[in-house]
Nucleic acid binder design. Structure first.
Lengths: 335, 335
DNA sequence: TTGAAAGCGATACCAT
DNA sequence: ATGGTATCGCTTTCAA
């Protein structure tokens, strides 16, 4: 950042003190109309833009929110990111973005984040060691987990109610008379996966189902495709598959149609989780448990602001209900 | 950013001067092994992390790259973003992210960017007024346009060679014996669209094609779907459609199959542009002109670094060739 | 209302 | 190799 116009330059041109220039640009602090006018003109003439670095240094706050995203390339998250950006923009906050491999913990990028003294940190679908969570706490940086939580931590979190979502899916499949049910899991250590599976299998059990099939994937399309091929080429193939993500569900649909030659939903019902835009496409018309991204983002920001205001408020976990979205991929129920 | 450990605290605990602490954390400047050791221990004990804000202020560079993305939710761009992030991470640079509505110019967010004194600015698929480009120049902030260019500006740009890509598509369609050809356009004022169309129609004309059909979309799925329905329900429906983006091409395929009841590629060939991951999915197997994201990102960063090193180097426009990727959606040619 | 001056937390030059 | 000190550009008392 080379040769810059500073508030001193503006002050000289306007014939006022540097303090006055600062006052004009901070807020409606006491400064006489005519001086304010002169300052504004001088600033405009010189093309002055206040230096946010210097401001941050004195103010001890940067107006920057850090956000770390795993899975940027999985279709659900760009929407989340976009929503966050829109909110931040309106709040006049900037966004420092980091990526982490999904389910890799982000301890190694924490120093970078800490260095830049972000006002708050939002972590989506990645893990944060308790040590690092504490580190943030020491630095007074509020941390909000998005779609992941840690029980024994003082980090806040906003999640879809995945357990309940799993239950609702189980109910739907049973209510529509499916007999042989299967689950395609996501990464086994992701709470999104385990919670969905827990709710799902608990409810199956509660309603008297003794056994069901299970395959493991990783939330991505290809793994859903592969798992579905394994499932559907069994002699006792399932008549319904619940996939832990829409992405895998789309893979499963393609596997059924193109890999095994079955029809959806006549031969096999597929249900997903997330409600990504592609789920609505005519090729798929995927019935799925939607995550309410807008609500989740709003809750996250609300929590974040609260933590910035009152750093000592106690950590909270907010669950946002999913919404069952009926399309055409489950037999026995249509929109 | 509350109570912080500063280099002074570390200096006191280690029993050295503050300058020494700074030296330890800047680089392998002359500092004796034992003092360095003491400093490191003290720093660790106190949980000291250098304040990047203060550092930026003195060094006059932030180590932050600004990147503005339009179309974050269109499937191509998250990959671009991810690639940039990976590179920046390796270069130890941070990323300040901004969004802009596609084809809206970004003048209104420029002040925010300027304030934060980013070391460079990358703009993907959005417009930048000449005035703002000059503003950046005055501030010595190198600007690189990604997948968009402005002829009469001193901004650098990296683009896929869209014109040539359009030509190659025209050749392919003609070589495989298609008779009635159609083009579905993206936003009319995007250079990505106009260049693709120019190459395409020039080549058609060169090879003696007198007329072809044309519909207008906006790069997104739904517009491709709608345009294809219009095209394919004509009595003289086309036997090949070139879509300005994969996204629209997927929409066109769905339209052909589900809206009109045709088969791909027997009844109509569809070809796209971008090569998004979904293009490879079994449902679509879209033949498309791939953009070489990795190469483009590498070129962009190369250009950026050059501009940071030698601010006066003259602006460059680098074209990256597309790669024709044959799958199953064009009749007469298979992988 | 306005200006002068003391930080904010680092870097880097200048001596030693 | 080390310490002292000016400096970066701003915000914010403190006086006037």
């Amino acid at each position: 950042m080379p040769k810059h116009v500073t508030s001193i330059d503006v002050a000289q041109l306007a014939g006022v003190s540097q303090s006055t220039v600062s006052r004009v640009f901070t807020d409606m602090d006491s400064v006489s109309p005519d001086k304010r006018q002169r300052v504004l003109e001088a600033a405009h003439e010189l093309g002055y833009v206040p230096n946010a670095i210097a401001r941050s240094l004195t103010m001890k706050r940067t107006n920057i929110i850090g956000i770390v995203m795993a899975n940027l390339t999985s279709p659900f998250y760009p929407y989340v990111l976009e929503k966050f950006l829109q909110h931040f923009y309106q709040m006049d906050k900037q966004t420092l973005l980091f990526t982490a491999a999904p389910d890799q913990d982000i301890d190694d990028i924490m120093p970078h984040i800490l260095q830049h003294r972000v006002d708050a940190l939002i972590i989506t679908s990645a893990k944060l060691s308790t040590a690092m969570a504490d580190e943030c706490l020491r630095y007074g940086i509020p941390v909000i987990l998005f779609n992941r939580y840690i029980l024994d931590s003082n980090a806040n979190a906003v999640c879809t109610d995945n357990v309940e979502g799993g239950r609702v899916v189980a109910n739907l499949l049973l209510d529509t008379g499916h007999q042989r049910i299967a689950y395609i899991a996501g990464q086994p250590n992701a709470s999104t996966n385990t919670d969905r599976e827990k709710g799902f299998s608990d409810r199956l059990r509660e309603r008297g189902v003794k056994e069901w099939l299970r395959e493991e994937g990783d939330f991505f399309y290809q793994s859903g495709y592969d798992a579905a091929v394994r499932l559907l080429s069994r002699p006792d193939r399932p008549d319904a598959i619940f996939c832990a993500s829409d992405n895998m569900a789309l893979g499963a649909i393609d596997a059924a149609r193109y890999g095994v030659g079955l029809h959806i939903p006549q031969d096999v019902s597929i249900i997903g989780f997330d409600d990504i835009p592609m789920a609505a496409w005519p090729s798929y018309r995927l019935t799925t448990m939607a995550q309410q991204v807008d609500v989740m983002v709003a809750e996250t920001i609300d929590l974040m602001l609260r933590k910035i205001e009152e750093p000592d408020s106690k950590p909270a976990l907010r669950l946002v209900p999913g919404r069952l979205t009926i399309r055409g991929s489950v037999r026995g129920i249509q929109p």
